[in-house]
Design a protein around this nucleic acid. Structure first.
Lengths: 204, 204
DNA sequence: TCGATGGCTTGACAGTGTCTAGTTGACACA
DNA sequence: TGTGTCAACTAGACACTGTCAAGCCATCGA
């Protein structure tokens, strides 16, 4: 009897095992054979579905982008003000990264995945498109002079960088016996700073 | 005769070979034996100086942080205005990442390096301290209400995220036959946006 | 001249990704 | 009922990996 068949769908089981393993050991601690072991199949079974290690990881990354786009949609539901939408999407991005550390880690390491995979390209640009849309809304409502491309790149860089650094910030807080504010509060502050700028006095 | 002894100092040669290899193949394509091969020594020689693979990579990361802090210092030399200083440091961060891709990649992957290494802790917090200092200057000169911690985390997340995403943005530009603005121009725009905010009309 | 030591080499080990060949079971069709 | 096909694996082999133990050897202090 296989030890850990979580679903009847082996590809699904292998993706889940991969995300779990990467979350535990990081993207460099990943091993195809360990994934197969956790899924209760032979060491060569994954190759049958995904070709090679890169194929499996690419599939995991695509799953991550799909989750991200879905979380974006849920987050902005019912929100009309573009700033509220940006704020909500920022939080959704970070939350997705925090709640799916295995997926997120795989998505971040370029050479681990096949960038030319059409499915991956589709889902990742779908997620980025939602971000572009919300920045366009800010231009339309608040500032027609806003450079949307620059602002989008900046916003994306910010949430991505923050999500990447969050574990380190957490560790640092542990070591220095300080407490880190919840990421939602941090994103909230970022949104205010991004809208009003460093030079603007915060209003009462 | 050894094939590729770049200096008389083997640890130095090994660090250089590691950075080169990681730049070529990414942090997951790194191999201790390949590094030894490129340095023209036996496969176990690196272990003699660095203990294990993690020791070597930690040393490379520390070297990267030292370079970063040095580049910060060079960048702000002679600049008095805090905004100019922030701008210069942002560019210096991205430039350091671009010019030292091997070092930067190693610095980014947490589980590859020993976070408890005292040398690493010292040089990395020295680099972060310089960033904190410049944000403090902005508060003093432009806005006493500025939340320095939030702004520092935000600025760090931004430049870090941007540096991380830059290769992907480059690839994307190649594929879509568009051209990406030089990163210095992008950072310049980020600085303006960070100072003035999305909602502020850009002045003529 | 001797012993010790730092800096390396050599060889072995278990673990890895990928390739090839083979097994097993479900299904369509005669 | 028998036959062929095909998907979904398994099993074994290969070259590669990091790490460990042992050994070699030039240099150095006494």
């Amino acid at each position: 009897m296989p030890t850990a068949t979580r679903t009847d769908d082996l590809p699904d089981t292998l993706r889940a095992a991969t995300a779990e393993l990467v979350a535990e050991r990081g993207p460099t601690g990943f091993s195809l054979r360990e994934v197969a072991r956790r899924a209760g199949v032979s060491h060569a079974a994954p190759a049958h579905h995904f070709g090679d290690a890169r194929g499996l990881l690419t599939s995991v990354a695509a799953e991550g982008f799909t989750t991200l786009a879905a979380n974006f949609d849920i987050a902005v539901e019912g929100l009309d003000d573009p700033v509220d939408r940006m704020n909500a999407m920022g939080k959704a991005y970070v939350r997705t990264a925090v709640e799916n550390p295995g997926h997120f880690a795989v998505m971040c390491v370029d050479e681990l995945i096949d960038q030319d995979d059409p499915t991956l390209a589709e889902v990742s640009s779908a997620a980025y498109g939602r971000l572009l849309g919300v920045i366009g809304g800010i231009r339309d409502t608040y500032n027609p002079d806003l450079d949307v491309d620059a602002a989008a790149t900046m916003t994306f860089s910010l949430v991505h960088g923050f999500s990447t650094l969050l574990p380190s910030l957490d560790d640092l807080a542990d070591k220095t016996d300080t407490t880190l504010a919840p990421f939602e509060d941090m994103v909230e502050k970022f949104t205010v700073l991004m809208m009003n700028g460093y030079a603007a006095r915060s209003e009462r």
